[in-house]
């Protein structure tokens, strides 16, 4: 079972508990667990319309989820709540996030229109890919 714990203020941000639960369910799949065990990065997710944010601190097989922004995350993803969940709907093909179906194209379109902002995507592309794979429910 994945080592996921809730850190400070996580209990004040319902989104943190929701996404932590989703991640726990994802990590029941061995392929995702393998990626999780190799992932070391920090990600800040911010749902702009809900004004809710959370930080995920991945440390090679361990994850602490914080409410709000904690430390200096390497990746920062900001968009509306529905799009954050859409990101979890991205398909993974050949070990990579797949952007050529309706969900993938929708995500790309939002990136272009700046409705989805990802800070650190060029500086930490591998971490971003791994996070996407771990978060994807597919």
């Amino acid at each position: 079972m994945a080592d996921i714990t809730l850190g400070s203020r996580a209990d004040e941000v319902p989104m943190a508990g929701m996404l932590a639960d989703m991640l726990k369910a994802n990590l029941e799949k061995p392929a995702k667990m393998k990626i999780f065990n190799s992932l070391k990065t920090t990600v800040y997710l911010y749902a702009e319309d809900a004004d809710a944010g959370m930080t995920m601190d991945f440390d090679k097989g361990k994850l602490v989820v914080y409410g709000g922004k904690e430390g200096k995350p390497k990746l920062e993803i900001a968009t509306d709540a529905a799009t954050l969940l859409e990101l979890a709907n991205l398909k993974i093909k050949m070990g990579m996030p797949y952007y050529f179906d309706a969900t993938g194209r929708g995500v790309l379109k939002k990136l272009m229109k700046r409705q989805l902002k990802i800070k650190g995507m060029f500086g930490h592309p591998i971490a971003l890919t791994k996070v996407t794979k771990v978060m994807s429910i597919n």
């Binding site: 319902p14 989104m15 929701m18 639960d21 989703m22 369910a25 994802n26 749902a47 319309d49 809900a50 004004d51 809710a52 509306d80 709540a81 529905a82 954050l84 969940l85 859409e86 979890a88 709907n89 429910i137 597919n138």
Partner: peptide, 25 residues
């Protein structure tokens, strides 16, 4: 109030498997 936003803010609470809901968003 958009449902997803409501869930993330805790204004609405979901009991059930979140990934299943996300697939059928």
């Amino acid at each position: 109030l958009e449902t997803t936003k409501g869930l993330m803010q805790g204004k609405l609470k979901l009991k059930g498997d979140l990934p299943t809901i996300v697939r059928a968003v």
